[in-house]
Every structure is written in structure tokens, then in C-alpha cells.
Amino acid sequence: MKIGKSYNLWGWVFISLALIALTLFILYPIIYSLYLSTFSTRGFLKTFVGFGNYKRLFQDRNFLLSLKNISIIFVVQIPIMLFLALIYAFLLNDPKLKFKGFFRTALFLPAVTSLVAYTILFKMMFSTDGLVNNILLAIGIIKQPIRWLLDPFWAKVTLIIAMTWRWTGYNMMFYLAGLQNIPNEIYEAAEIDGANRRVQFFKITIPLLKPIILFTTIMSTIGTLQLFDEPMNLAAGVVTGSSVGPGNSLLTPSVYIYNVCFKYVPNFGYASAISYVIVLIAAILSLIQFKVVGERR
């Protein structure tokens, strides 16, 4: 449809409100923080440092640690969660399965909770004298209570368990929606040809869901880079001092940015530089994922 001049004007009218709001609350902050990232700011003092903040980043142990922390989540949590979600979707897509609605609702329910609320819940469950330890002790899996939130390794395990609980069902729904586009006849034909469930899963489901798997992987990657509510609330009040989780094991880039701005002596310029590096990492990772999956949509 070719549009005339007056319709073109109407197009701008319709998007004007959004453009004003986006410029004010997203575009202006992005540009301003690029400018700010070339300064070192201490309260009202502002000194131009050029690329100084970016150079400083690569020697900042806390920043590097925060990157290491989220890369563990990236490598361990995302694959576990997406693989589980795929399996659930595959099983629930079986037309012969009973109680499908119940299972689907139950598995999706965690996605209803707010990030703060479920984190608090998990923090209580995983306290050293808490429910999870009591159960594990009672059935004899462990002899000593695990110091979930007091040990750097276990603190990360807790975070990974919590995030997997919250997001697996959410991702499952994407796959279920995608599976609806795959005709059941394909599975029936495969069954007649003698393909068992495992073969069906790896040879039919995963290849056909590739674009959606890519989408969920990118969303999860961006989500991991932005991780804030969970580490903040898991760490709150457990360890004293400025450490985020034991030995800063729950320090993420977003939490670090927040702390640089509002907890330590505020250095807005440096925080902006961190933000820019994170945006860059997000862009690069998304690009790599596109390339790896090899499908541009």
C-alpha cells in the first residue's frame, strides 16, 4: 500500500507520544551516559579522563569478578534450564498424555512470582538451618548441613537452582507454542519408522525449534547480563560489609553498577563506562549466537 503525504504525517502523529517518552527516558540517558563515561566523577567534582574509565575497567578486580560470576550462570544455568524446558515441552506435546493442563499450569506457575518475592522465599528455604537442609539431612543425603548462602560455591548453586525454578516453565511455554506448528503426523511417521522418543526429540523437535531456541537463548543471555533482583536479595543481610554474597560470589555487573552509583563514593562516570561495556558484550554475544545457530530471521 502506497501512502500519501497526509497519511505519512499521521504515522508520525501516532508514534509521537512514544517517541517523546523514549527520547526522554531511554535515548537521552544512553547518549548522556556515553558522554559521562569519559569523566571521572566524585560527587560534584568532574574530571575529563577520556578512555581512562575503560582502561581502568580491565584492572578492576570487582568488575572482572562480576563478569566471571555471570559467565558461570551463562555456561551452567542457561543450558540446564533450556534443555529441561525443551524436554517438558516435548513430553507435554504428546497427544496421548493425560493431565496435560495440570502439568503445564504447575510448571508455568513459578513465572507468576515477582523476582524479589521468589528470591526471598528461596533465601529462607536455603538458610543453613532451613527447610532444604532439614530435608536433605532427614533422608540422609548429607551428614552436615550445607552452608548454602555462606559459602561462595554453594551461594552460586543456590542462585542457579532458584533461577532454574523461576524460568524453566516460562521458556517451556515458548517451545510449546512452537511445537504447535509442527504437525503431529511427523511424529507418527517417525514412530512407524521405529524412531524411539530419544531419536524423535533430537532429530525432530530440536532441529524444528531452532529459531525459537535461538530466541530464548538470546533473551536468557540478555537477562543474565542484567541480573540484579536475585543476587541483591539473596545477598542482603547474609554477609556484612560491602561483599555481595560470600567472597562477592553474587556480584553481577548490574549490582556493581548500582553499588558504584549509590553505595560507595558515587562515581557516575565510571558506572556509565561499565554500562557501555555490558551493552557491548550483550551485542557481541547475540551476534555469536546468531552465527552459531546459523539462521537469520
Partner: peptide, 11 residues
Amino acid sequence: MIPPAALMVPL
């Protein structure tokens, strides 16, 4: 793609 934490300061 931009993390909300990155917009915090200017906002």
C-alpha cells in the same frame, strides 16, 4: 538490549 542499570544514572 540495554541493561536498565545502565540508564539509572542519567535518569
